[in-house]
Design a protein around this nucleic acid. Structure first.
Length: 499
RNA sequence: GCCCCAUUGGAGUAGCGGUUAUCUCGUCAGCCUUUCAAGCUGAAGAUCACGGGUUCGAAUCCCGUAUGGGGUACCA
């Protein structure tokens, strides 16, 4: 059997905020790719920005990934434990690995000291830009003699370590799995700072060292990192033993997700955090599906892609190069399909938290009258797109007294109050006489009312609907009456007809 | 300024040199109907950003332009 290096991918969020849609999609692709290839999905927390990183954000990211159904093989776990041997999985705890990496680069002459001050650098940058050239570092310190360097070091002049971009090469080619070959002219690759004067590594250095140490084989990330890639390739090469070509991982750069105005998705566009979508009533599998489709397709026609399908079918060569706009309407449509696909039992369980949050129901109630919930569930599941719609649609079934919507009252009750009073009283009488309050009986007596009263069905039924549910929109009428029960139905009809 | 990327109906996409340019969402109309949905049927909507090439033949390949985006920090 040929030796195949196992796939190892990583998702490395910065806990400077909660998990947003773009990050979630990156995580999904990494996860799906790992699962597809039987590899490892590693979660690393890039928390070097100590100013903005918080433990709360870390927790939120972990929760959001878990909610989405993404499981990682290595990294911090929800219960506080850590899985995997390639850790630590918090970048702030990996400090020890950067110095040896730097020393290795010093030894093979791929790094050098730079004594330029930030002010000097800024001035040079401005000048270079004004002259119309590239704005990279002018490499002054790269040409310092050994003696000059020694003098400055002896004088305790502060310095940073920079990458020595090799001479003699014309370009660095990034062979991207999504975009194909992209060549960066060598002049455009900057001698970037590896280690700051305070001894901490920069992002590009830390990230690359970590990826190398962790044996990452494929880096799948946002395309805002594409320009960083040639620099990172150089670092990978410098870090590698004996020109080991396999030391440079494969790259796949994902286009950004835009808001509906074509601008980069941000808070201005409303909800962008995964937890916000959960609160809006999206199902995890539906969000996963919708996000996966933002830049990837299974084929020409499939819209519904379950987590299982994603794990089996995901491939980077079907990732689109175009930036995608986030479309809430389509996501809602996908969500509604997932809702409809749920079994009655599943939907009852899915409704419960939303009802509980409003104090309308609890597990005990479900256990006490499972049939009632079983009848309710399909009536609701087929007409909502978001789980948040459950409460407004069913609240009238749980409360003792309905609050009748003003508009609904005006339209269905007060418009012709005498007629509606007659209709409601007739309904009252018809229902009052029923011994068995079930759907066939209720339907039998109510359905014939309009004809008996010589009124339009619409007038009669809407009046009843508003009297019982308080709204012009409700689940089907006869079913609603049965679910409400005889006592409450009569009570509400009586109240409404007196107005 | 410089470097890189992208551009197919309103949105997401299929397309890999020869198709009536695919599918989904959305929109509109009809059916169903006690409301709202769902469902079903149908319709409108794309000179494949533009201009040049290459080719018998281009949405597909090449060059340029425009537009949008990313990068260009001792940020990540």
């Amino acid at each position: 059997m040929p030796e195949v290096s196992p796939v190892r991918v990583r998702f490395a969020p910065s806990p400077t905020g909660t998990l947003h849609l773009g990050g979630a999609r990156t995580a999904i692709y990494n996860w799906a790719f790992a699962r597809k290839h039987g590899g490892d999905f590693i979660l690393r927390i890039d928390d070097t920005d100590s100013e903005r990183s918080t433990p709360e954000n870390v927790q939120q990211i972990l929760d959001a990934l878990t909610w989405l159904g993404l499981d990682w093989d290595e990294g911090p776990k929800l219960d506080g434990s850590i899985a995997g041997d390639a850790g630590p999985y918090f970048q702030t705890q990996r400090g020890d690995s950067y110095q040896p990496a730097l020393e290795k680069m010093i030894a093979n002459n791929t790094a050098y000291r730079c004594f330029c001050t930030m002010e000097e650098l800024a001035a040079k940058r401005d000048a270079a830009r004004l002259a119309g050239g590239s704005s990279g570092y002018d490499r002054t310190c790269r040409h310092l003699s050994v003696e000059e360097v020694q003098t400055k070091v002896d004088a305790d002049t502060p310095f940073v370590w920079r990458l020595k971009v090799p001479e003699g090469r014309t370009s660095i080619v990034v062979n991207d799995l999504v975009r194909g070959e992209t060549a960066f002219p060598i002049e455009a690759v900057d001698d970037l700072v590896l280690m700051r004067s305070d001894g901490t590594p920069t992002y590009n250095f830390a990230s690359t060292v970590d990826d190398a140490d962790m044996g990452i084989t494929h880096i799948i990330r946002g395309d805002d990192h594409l320009s960083n890639t040639p620099k990172q390739i150089l670092i990978f090469e410098a870090l590698a033993a004996d020109d080991d070509k396999s030391a440079v991982p494969a790259f796949a750069h994902l286009s950004m997700i835009y808001g509906d105005d074509g601008k980069k998705l941000s808070k201005r566009h409303g909800a962008v955090g995964v937890e916000e979508f959960a609160a809006m009533g999206f199902l995890p599998d539906a969000l996963l599906n919708g996000l996966a489709l933002l830049g990837w397709s299974l084929d020409a026609e499939t819209t519904i892609v379950t987590p299982k399908m994603l794990k089996e079918k995901f491939s980077l060569d079907r990732v689109s190069k175009n930036p995608a706009r986030f479309d809430m309407a389509k996501l809602e449509h996908i969500n509604s399909i997932y809702i409809q696909e749920m079994s009655t039992e599943e939907f009852v369980q899915a409704m419960l938290p939303w009802l509980e949050a409003e104090g309308l129901s609890d597990a005990e109630d479900v256990a006490a009258r499972p049939e009632w919930y079983t009848e309710l569930a399909p009536l609701i599941s087929e007409r909502i797109k978001l789980m948040t719609e459950v409460v407004p649609m069913t609240k009238f079934l749980f409360v003792d007294e309905v609050e009748i919507d003003k508009k609904a009252r005006a339209k269905a009750l007060d418009k012709d109050s005498e007629t509606t009073a007659i209709a409601l009283k007739a309904t009252y009488s018809a229902l009052e006489g029923l011994d068995t309050f079930d759907l066939p009986n209720v339907e039998a007596v109510v359905k014939t009312l309009p004809a008996e009263l010589d009124l339009k069905p619409r007038v009669v039924f809407q009046a009843i609907r508003v009297a019982l549910s308080g709204s012009l929109v409700s689940p089907p009428l006869f079913e609603s009456i049965v679910l409400l029960g005889k006592e409450r139905s009569l009570e509400r009809l009586s109240v409404a007809s007196k107005h």
